[in-house]
Amino acid sequence: MSDVIVAPETRNLEALAQAMAQWLGTKMPNAGEISVRDLAYPRGAGQSHETVLFDAHWREGGEACHQGCVVRIKPGGFTVFPDDLFDQQYGVMKALADGRQVRVARPLWFEHDPSLLGNPFFVMERKTGRVPVSIPPYAREGWLRDAAPEQRRVLWRNAVGQLAAVQRVPLDGLDFLAGPQGERGLEQEWAKYVRFARWLQEVGPQPVLDAALDRLRGLWPENQPEGLVWGDARIGNMMFDENFDVVAVMDWEQPSLGGALHDLAWFCVIADTMHGPASTYGAPLEGMGSREETVALWEELTGKSPADLEWYEDFAKFKMTCTGIRLGHLRGTRIMDEAAMAKRLKVG
């Protein structure tokens, strides 16, 4: 497998190591001889935040100590989403780590002062495992492509299990994830992506997006089960161990209280695109559950109805289109022409 760095912004890692070592000294007053080593950008993932892996070493109480860490830095010029949810990203990870229902990397420290790295940042523990990366596509090459069908089946079940665990999280104590006007439920996710579509008007008129919003609003779903929204629910945002069990659920940059079906829909659309019947990356991966199997297992594990899922899948495609347009603008490329967008969004 080829190694590809996908990072919106990069910096001098030697200078970062020195800055982080000094900063860690303010967070660990009993630590001495602090050093930060082996800094690296993740390979094959990470398009919206600058994320750097590192190892922290220090001495405390006469003992040598070590902690694998990840620093995640708030986006600066390369901003994919209109809503700034950086603080909420840290907060939801902290709540999930404390609850232990969803497997996430434990957040360690948050730094609001932008003077050190140019923007606020937070540090979390580093998990060890394998990620089905998008670049190169995991369905085309890599460890998941090379796995046996029965191993992929285990991975699929464990991935859906963690997806369902997200939607089972009690919402008590998560009020900080409500929308700017206190919105919750479907109206919160809807308002977020209406803002996104309006934000994209800065690039130019978006008649296809306007038509898609009108279509979706006219088909408003009756089934709106409550639940936490992860925001980018896919196996490519999960880390797995050698037994194909989930080590960590990652990338919580767009969380909300929008409802349980948004993540299921996103998961199904991405799965179909990456390794399902509609995959453009080669033959479907045998052993990975079908859409019907995924929905049935999710329903069994959550106890929530997947009724109206097709509407949520269409909404997920709308969200993905907004993100694609924005990424294309930032990179100076065109992700999809208007005719293709209209077909995808069932308008025109």
Score class of each variant (00 low, 15 high):
G289Q: 06
L297N: 02
D308P: 01
E33F: 06
G348T: 06
Q67C: 03
R130A: 11
Q224I: 10
T26N: 10
E111R: 03
A278Y: 04
V154C: 07
M20E: 01
L186N: 04
R198Q: 15
R152K: 09
R145F: 13
G68I: 11
A339D: 08
P225W: 10
V269P: 05
L144Q: 10
L39G: 00
D337H: 04
S48M: 06
S290I: 01
A271G: 02
W109M: 10
R11E: 08
S35V: 13
I325T: 12
D263N: 12
A340P: 05
D232F: 15
A56N: 00
A283D: 13
R168S: 12
E14I: 06
G182M: 12
C65E: 06
N12W: 01
L177V: 13
A342I: 05
L117C: 02
L200W: 03
P107R: 03
N237C: 13
G68W: 02
A260N: 10
E338K: 07
D263V: 12
E150V: 07
D337Q: 05
V123A: 00
P170L: 12
R157T: 12
E313W: 00
D272E: 11
F121G: 04
A148D: 15
V92C: 10
N12P: 03
E286K: 14
V52E: 00
S115E: 14
G236A: 14
P29E: 04
G118I: 00
E253I: 03
F240M: 11
S279I: 03
M1V: 13
D172E: 15
P205A: 07
F240R: 06
V131R: 08
P149T: 03
Y193C: 05
Q254K: 14
G142S: 09
L327T: 06
L257Q: 10
T128K: 15
P205T: 00
F240E: 08
G25P: 11
T333G: 09
W190F: 05
V194S: 09
A21K: 08
V4F: 08
K27G: 00
W156S: 12
D210I: 00
R184Q: 14
Y312D: 00
K319P: 09
K319R: 15
R157D: 08
L213E: 03
Q206K: 02
H262P: 11
S279P: 09
A95L: 11
V36F: 02
R152I: 11
H57E: 11
F196A: 04
E60W: 01
G258C: 04
V133T: 14
Q201P: 10
K127F: 14
E189N: 15
A340L: 02
P221V: 03
V247I: 14
K319N: 07
T273M: 14
A178H: 04
P207V: 01
S279D: 08
R198C: 13
L116T: 00
T128P: 06
W311T: 02
R334G: 10
Q88D: 05
P205L: 00
R217I: 01
A316G: 05
Y90N: 01
L24M: 07
T10A: 01
Q101Y: 06
P306C: 04
G44E: 05
G161L: 02
G303D: 11
V249F: 13
M336Y: 12
Q167M: 14
R157A: 07
L264P: 03
H262E: 12
Q224C: 12
L108W: 10
R198G: 09
H329R: 12
E33T: 08
P137G: 05
V166M: 09
